[in-house]
Amino acid sequence: MSSEERVLKIAQHPSPALHALIADRDSMSSHLLADALVRNRKCDATAIHPSDLMEVLAVREIDLVVIGAEINSDASGGFDLADTVCRTYPDLMIVLLLNETTHEAVVNAFRSGARGVFSRQKPIGEFLDCIEHVSKGYIWAGREETTSLLEAFRNIPAPSVLTADNALPLTKREFEVVQCAAKGKTNKTIASELGLSEHTVKNYLFRAFDKLGVSSRVELLFYLTIRGHTFGAVKPEADLRFE
């Protein structure tokens, strides 16, 4: 084959513009989404089991990953997987699929590194639009998801209420509970890790909310973020401030 013929063949069969992996909650859903991307967006999209995702990313050049938030019967498994992917491959685009677009789910999705958040209740056409926008470098959130974020921002206490030394007005135990809550852990998980009852965890959270002037975990997360408190890599205890 001559060089002219090779150039012509490449021009007739160009490489897909986007290489994507779909790691959803079950094989059927993953394959349906991958097929839709291949047919409608001419992507190189492959369905994959969530447990194999990191191994495949290590050996293939991938541009975008779609992850189901609820995988392996774990309500937060997809968030954890997205966070691992984001930390390992920070330039990789991530879209998270949500069963329910609650305030906490939306915020946790973006906090896990997602550049797009998509509700399963929406039609496949909107999913394709989401992928196209995210692949171009845009952030995607539907109307309900955007409303959740805006409401959370509106309810953040004004910066004027912050203390001059940026210390949190919490006891050490309250801070430990808040620290776990900010990581997206449930009251049951927090109770197990700290050796407390779920009722006691709820009481600590209510007291912390009251002291900080917030009313939900979402507002708590934003409040801590604007103060520079991040819990992906927690500071040594000696650096934390308590009253």
Results as ranks from 00 to 15, higher is better:
Gly184Pro: 07
Val178Ile: 14
Thr171Asp: 02
Arg143His: 11
Thr147Gly: 12
Lys183Pro: 01
Ala181Gln: 07
Ile139Gly: 00
Ala191Ser: 13
Leu149Lys: 06
Ile124Ser: 09
Glu145Pro: 05
Gly125Val: 06
Glu151Tyr: 10
Phe175Tyr: 14
Pro123Leu: 08
Ala152His: 02
Ala152Leu: 01
Val117Ala: 11
Val178Gly: 01
Leu170Ile: 09
Arg120Gln: 13
Ala141Trp: 01
Phe127Met: 15
Leu194Arg: 03
Ala181Ser: 13
Ile156Gln: 12
Ser160Lys: 14
Val177Tyr: 04
Asp165Arg: 06
Lys172Trp: 09
His133Asn: 12
Thr189Arg: 07
Gly113Asp: 07
Thr200Met: 07
Ala141Asn: 04
Ile156Pro: 00
Leu194Ala: 08
Thr189Met: 10
Val177Cys: 05
Thr171Ser: 14
Gly184Leu: 06
Leu150Phe: 14
Leu162Asp: 15
Ser148Gly: 05
Ser197His: 10
Glu176Val: 00
Asp165Val: 03
Pro169Trp: 04
Thr186Tyr: 04
Arg120Phe: 03
Thr147Asp: 14
Arg120Tyr: 05
Val161Tyr: 06
Thr147Asn: 13
Lys136Ala: 10
Ile131Gly: 01
Glu145Ile: 05
Lys136Ser: 08
Leu128Ala: 10
Ala158Pro: 00
Arg143Glu: 15
Thr147Arg: 15
Ser119Asp: 11
Phe118Glu: 02
Ile124Glu: 12
Pro159Phe: 13
Gly142Glu: 10
Ile131Thr: 10
Pro157Asn: 02
Leu196His: 01
Arg115Cys: 06
Leu150Thr: 11
Leu194Ile: 10
Lys185Ile: 02
Ala109Pro: 02
Ser135Gly: 15
Arg120Val: 06
Glu132Phe: 05
Glu198Asp: 14
Gly184Arg: 01
Leu150Met: 15
Ser135Arg: 09
Ala152Gln: 00
Lys172Asp: 06
Lys185Trp: 05
Gly195Ile: 10
His133Lys: 15
Cys130Lys: 03
Ala181Pro: 01
Lys185Glu: 10
Ala109His: 02
Ile156Lys: 05
His199Gly: 08
Glu193Phe: 03
Glu144Asn: 11
Ile139Asn: 03
Glu151Ser: 05
Lys185His: 11
Leu196Asp: 04
Ala152Glu: 00
Ser197Lys: 11
Asn166Tyr: 02
Ile190Trp: 07
Val107Gln: 12
Asn108Tyr: 02
